Simulated scan of single mutants.
Amino acid sequence: MDQDLGDFLRSRRARIQPEDVGLPAGGRRRVPGLRREELAQLAGVSVDYYVRLEQGRSPNVSDAVLDAIARALRLDETESAHLRNLVRPARTARRTQRTQQVRPGVLRMLEMMDDVPAFVLGRRMDILAWNPLADAVTGFSALDRPNAARHTFLHPDARELYPEWSAVAAETVAYLHLDAGRHPDDPQLAALVGELSMKSEQFRRLWPRQDVKDKTHGRKLIRHPIVGDLEFRYETFAVPGDESQLLVAYTVAAGSPSEERLRLLASWQASEPPADVRPPSREPRSR
């Protein structure tokens, strides 16, 4: 985790030019962005103190110092929370691998959302459950190990399904980084990152950027093989009692072509054999 903290702070320093914060640019620079001593000056701490923090050797950092460093680095709310998670990693007991469980009430709620594609996203972006319309849109039931990150980077049809694949890929990596900060020393997440790094050049390029982004709401464009382009807005809701699970719902604008195409897809899906909110023969497993 100390390595993650140092990598994150260095990546944020590299984004800021001295002239952007009222400092002289100076002569030739070996690295982009702010030097350590410049950031320490902006945050009002000693250079030695900041160096020890970046190296993970300052475990008792005050909130005031972290706030000052966050302001100096121009971190947003999500990045500031990520910094705190890296400095003060949560102490969680290591557990044996086990299936992430979705409560029956949440599964029933998915069933009742019959005109809205919806699914439950768990730790490490595992897709834990979905309703039939979400399956018709994304094809979750055809995945051997339903996981949004693995699907984005390794599935052969992902670039066709997501016309704005580059944006989807960047958001996926940023959310995985956020999950890593919230749950340090997770061997299953480390295994997933290792798998994606070995098999995807694009993932290897994006992961070192240290971007973090929460999955709250946004836009998702899907090019469906039957009905064509579907432009969704998505909203996410934390499942009460289990902060590691998110209920994700896709909506379309009223009167839009996407609404008409989604209705057509729903009619097509209704003519197919009934589907459960999760495939009974492929219950998503914890990785």
Rank of each mutant, 00 (worst) to 15 (best):
Y50W: 05
R88F: 07
V137L: 09
R124G: 01
D229G: 01
R145N: 00
W268V: 12
V168T: 01
R52E: 09
A25Y: 04
V65A: 05
W130H: 08
L73F: 10
V102C: 10
S141D: 10
P59Q: 15
E171Y: 12
L176Y: 01
A167M: 04
K199Y: 07
E235Q: 13
S258F: 02
L246R: 00
A43G: 10
A254F: 05
T152E: 02
A72T: 06
R74V: 11
V212E: 06
D185A: 14
R205D: 11
A64S: 12
Y49I: 01
G241C: 06
D211S: 09
G241E: 07
Q210P: 11
V102N: 07
D185I: 10
P89K: 05
G105A: 15
R36K: 05
D7Q: 12
A190H: 15
V102Q: 14
A148F: 14
L121K: 00
I16K: 06
A249D: 01
L221Q: 07
A14S: 13
R95L: 15
R159N: 04
I226D: 12
Q55M: 00
L34M: 09
T152C: 12
A238E: 13
G194I: 13
L23K: 13
R261K: 15
Q202T: 14
L75R: 02
G255M: 04
P89V: 07
V102S: 09
E37T: 01
N147V: 04
D4Y: 04
A174P: 02
Q100A: 09
